[in-house]
Design a protein around this nucleic acid. Structure first.
Length: 554
RNA sequence: GCGCCAGUAGCUCAGUUGGAUAGAGCAACGGCCUUCUAAGCCGUGGGCCGGGGGUUCGAAUCCUCCCUGGCGCGCCA
């Protein structure tokens, strides 16, 4: 809709320049927006105001000239006005709005999709939790966000791959092995000091018990080094399998699981360091190898290879991101916990050193989740083992409520997640509010069927039966859905979808309570049924983007 | 000390990459079920958009300086 109007405005500008009524010849980046107030029309453009300076005319005067060139609008609009400081307001015809309902039926579950990102390959990497413990609630928010952003990008035509980066190299795996090994010895009755820097959670003991059951006491006789390695491998695999299972229960699927260790095994970490040295971005100091990230605006240079010869996590991240772009992605999106924000400048430096635009890497920061129970904070700490796992929360409140709650706020603002509220089946709980609206339409359909009334097909509806203001308002809101999806995709902001859903549900509930869909007049019933089911389709599509189900009955 | 993010109604938050009279949910109060699901609807209040200055036709939005809060500043991952 916006694009159709924008084209008309451009044509009008061209017309004015051809006729000489306007002189600048400029085509400014004007906007076409939905005004905040209905009396300002359905859409408004600021084109005239942007030309004021170049034309040396008052904005309103320019608007009048444009207005004359815009013509009568045909079926698209029936009124155009100049208002305020120089806005041009368009009032679209009812016919045009109800035509949107036909669009919705034509595209069905694909209504809202577009081709804005066609031909672009994007990777979304998210969760990527170390395989040293189960996913906790913070990972859940990252999972819901990454998954929804991927869905949004797919819906707007991008070729999207979802990836999980497994940090299966480095110290933390050694710590995992050591933690398991020590617990194992404790289980065998040995007095063993269990250090603070080992993983404290109960799952460590459970895994150690598993090994004991399966393999008996053989690791007592093995060397500590060998045992720790074996435990690390076993534990890492088991924990990763658990993570995968938790994600599946949460409805999150990855196209690819990428191992950090693999980068080492193939020599790619060394190659990455060598490449930066060749390009002159790396240097040696104090027997360590540094990447001069300050060349690209970072605060200080960063170590890639330590003086003891060990590589840092950063070195493998250099290799990893180098490899990502080699796989042909035009854009790479990393979803991180917000506490890693200090890491962004050095990763942007990597991207630039690789000769790419820094914007080819987008880092999406996901803030902490504040877990509450009836308003009381629930304490969490990985170290002490007192954390709430994603699995526990999903089991308690359900996948739908959990995902919806995670996506209700911008990802970079902190989120209060109240378990009691998420479980409540009431007006306070926004998930049920939206799902209930969808279920209501389904219920109406079931009732219609008992009256031998089918949801009409395209062309079987007399839109003149839709005479109410609120019916028109619903059609207008449905018309905005594709633009909402596009905006949410472009900005990587799934919360825009939840806000839209909230608004659509409110309007629909209100309509439902004031008016009956199924009335005595068959033609009116059919038209209203058609409208209600357009709403249903948009609910289903939008919920699907968020990974939340659209139940037919509640 | 330096850097990043935030500060909008009593609370939790939106505000479409500068637009017109700043919105929603919750909480509070008052109403609505013999009719398609009351997990719903209708109505009522509620604001120095942290503060000062600047940029311009126009600022919650951009710049700058303060105030407050969160986070980050390892040859850890």
């Amino acid at each position: 809709m916006k694009e159709r109007l924008a084209k008309h405005i451009k044509d009008a500008l061209a017309d004015c320049y051809a006729k000489g009524t306007l002189a600048s010849g400029l085509y400014p980046e004007f906007t076409v927006e939905v005004p905040a107030h209905a009396e300002h029309g359905d859409y408004a453009t600021n084109a005239a105001m942007l030309l004021a300076r170049a034309e040396k005319k008052a904005p309103r005067q320019i608007a009048e000239i444009l207005l004359a060139a815009l013509g009568d609008g045909g079926e698209l609009w029936n009124k155009v006005t100049v208002a305020g400081p120089g806005f041009i307001n368009f009032f679209l015809t009812n016919r045009c709005w109800y035509g949107v309902l036909d669009d919705i039926y034509r595209h069905g579950r694909r209504y809202g999709e577009s081709q804005a990102g066609a031909g672009k390959k994007v990777q979304v990497e998210f969760v990527s939790a170390n395989p040293t413990g189960p996913l906790h609630i913070g990972h859940g928010r990252g999972a819901a966000t990454g998954d929804a952003v991927a869905s949004l990008l797919k819906a707007t035509g991008y070729d999207v791959q979802c990836e999980y980066y497994i940090n299966d190299a480095g110290n933390q795996m050694n710590t995992l092995g050591r933690s398991l090994y020590l617990r194992y010895r404790q289980l065998l009755g040995e007095e063993v000091n269990f250090p603070q820097d080992c993983y404290q959670g109960d799952y460590i003991r459970e895994l150690a018990q598993e090994v004991l059951d399966a393999e008996g006491e053989r690791y007592v006789r093995a060397s500590e080094e060998e045992a720790v390695r074996a435990f690390a491998e076993y534990g890492g695999q088991k924990i990763l399998a658990g993570i995968d299972a938790d994600l599946q229960a949460f409805g999150v699927h990855f196209d690819n699981w990428y191992s950090e260790q693999g980068l080492y095994d193939r020599g790619q970490v060394e190659q990455g360091v060598a490449l930066l040295q060749e390009k002159g971005y790396a240097y040696e100091k104090d027997e360590a190898i540094w990447f001069r990230t300050t060349d690209f605006g970072d605060d200080k240079d960063r170590v890639m290879v330590r003086s003891n010869g060990a590589t840092t996590y950063f070195a493998s991240d250099v290799a990893y991101h180098k490899e990502k772009f080699e796989r042909g992605f035009d854009q790479v999106i990393d979803v991180w916990g917000a506490d890693h924000h200090g890491y962004i400048p050095r990763m942007k430096a990597v991207v630039q050193a690789l000769g790419r635009n820094p914007d080819d890497l987008q880092v999406l920061l996901v803030q902490l989740v504040n877990l509450l129970r009836g308003g009381q904070q629930v304490a969490m700490s990985t170290r002490s083992g007192e954390f709430v796992t994603l699995r526990e929360v999903v089991d308690e409140v359900g996948k739908d409520a959990c995902r919806y709650f995670f996506l209700m706020r911008r990802s970079d603002s902190q989120l209060d997640f109240d378990l009691e509220l998420a479980k409540q089946q009431s007006t306070e709980n926004p998930v049920y509010y939206v799902q209930y609206a969808h279920a209501r339409v389904c219920s109406i359909n079931r009732n219609a069927e008992t009256q031998k009334l089918q949801v009409p097909a395209i062309g079987e509806v007399d839109f003149d039966c839709l005479t109410l203001e609120e019916e028109l308002a619903l059609a207008k809101l449905l018309a905005r859905y594709p633009e909402i999806v596009l905006g949410a995709a472009r900005h990587h902001e799934p919360h825009r979808i939840t806000f839209y859903l909230q608004e659509l549900a409110a309007q629909f509930h209100s309509y439902y309570n004031r008016q009956r869909i199924l009335v005595d007049d068959v033609e009116t019933s059919k038209a209203r049924l058609y409208l209600a089911n357009s709403v249903r389709i948009v609910f289903a599509n939008a919920l699907n983007l968020l990974g939340v189900s659209a139940p037919e009955q509640m």
